[in-house]
Design a protein around this nucleic acid. Structure first.
Length: 259
DNA sequence: ATGACAATCAGAGATTGA
């Protein structure tokens, strides 16, 4: 089973580029972030005509996450637990049912800039809630994953110019420590489980020719529970589609699971 | 030091992103 995550930076703006990638990459499941659409306006037919089930958790203008799946989706829930007053659409989860059942969580972790300030406080609070949900997932002892735009540069080798990010919300020590705490609960980060080399990124800014200069960062991640990590056979970044017409500033990351 | 670029909503330019 091939499962991908892709921050598309607006479903309307990606009406060409997203189906083109789907048709060539043929993922079974896709976790989308930044759909920037309310549920009623999400163009479900683009995906349903390709055989995907569609579950969305959108809001007007910003944020918004969704799951596409060629297999049935069960027990869909929306919103990260832990704060009923949080109205930002950044979390959706469902169980994908095929040979094995896998709990998949799609997330769009807050950016957090500028630092310091309320947006960074929100990011760290959101990460504390994520840690709680992560522990609950581990306690199930079932195959599960949490994937999406983490807005975290885990290590210096995950940025072309790490020195430019030292004070940024994506790479500050508090951010990296909060992310590492979640990993330390017992998760496997799929890309680094298979590729040690630097120079692999999932985001390039639109500005200043960042893509042409390969001035990127790796911020889109798959975290797997031990039962899910046992199924991992591959993890790749489809960086080539960043070079196409009207691309997102992120590219897809995917895993292949023996499930 | 700043802006660069893109998307959204709106119908100009502010806001958000990373």
């Amino acid at each position: 089973m091939k499962i991908a995550t892709f921050n598309i930076n607006g479903i309307k703006a990606r009406a060409q580029a997203l189906p083109e990638w789907l048709d060539e990459a043929q993922p079974d499941v896709v976790l989308l972030q930044e759909i920037k659409s309310i549920d009623e306006n999400f163009p479900r037919e683009i995906f349903e005509e390709r055989g995907y089930n569609v579950e969305t958790h959108g809001q007007k203008s910003f944020n918004g996450v969704a799951i596409l799946s060629k297999f049935p989706l069960e027990d869909v829930t929306r919103g990260l637990p832990g704060d009923d007053s949080d109205e930002q659409a950044r979390w959706i989860e469902a169980t994908v049912v095929n040979d094995k059942a896998i709990r998949v969580c799609g997330l769009y972790l807050p950016n957090g800039n500028p630092v310091p300030g309320p947006k960074y406080d929100y990011k760290l609070a959101w990460m504390a809630r994520l840690k709680k949900r992560a522990q609950d997932l581990l306690n199930t002892e079932e195959p599960a994953l949490m994937a999406g735009d983490y807005n975290v540069i885990p290590q210096p080798e995950d940025a072309a110019r790490p020195e430019a990010w030292t004070e940024d919300a994506l790479h500050r020590p508090e951010t990296r420590e909060a992310y590492q705490e979640i990993l330390n609960l017992g998760f496997t980060e799929a890309f680094r489980a298979r590729t040690r080399a630097p120079g692999h990124y999932s985001f390039w800014d639109y500005q200043a020719g960042a893509w042409q200069r390969n001035d990127g960062i790796r911020i889109d991640h798959f975290l797997l529970t031990p039962q899910c990590a046992d199924l991992l056979s591959d993890c790749q970044i489809d960086s080539h589609i960043r070079d196409r017409e009207k691309p997102s500033d992120h590219v897809p990351v995917w895993v292949e699971l023996d499930a």
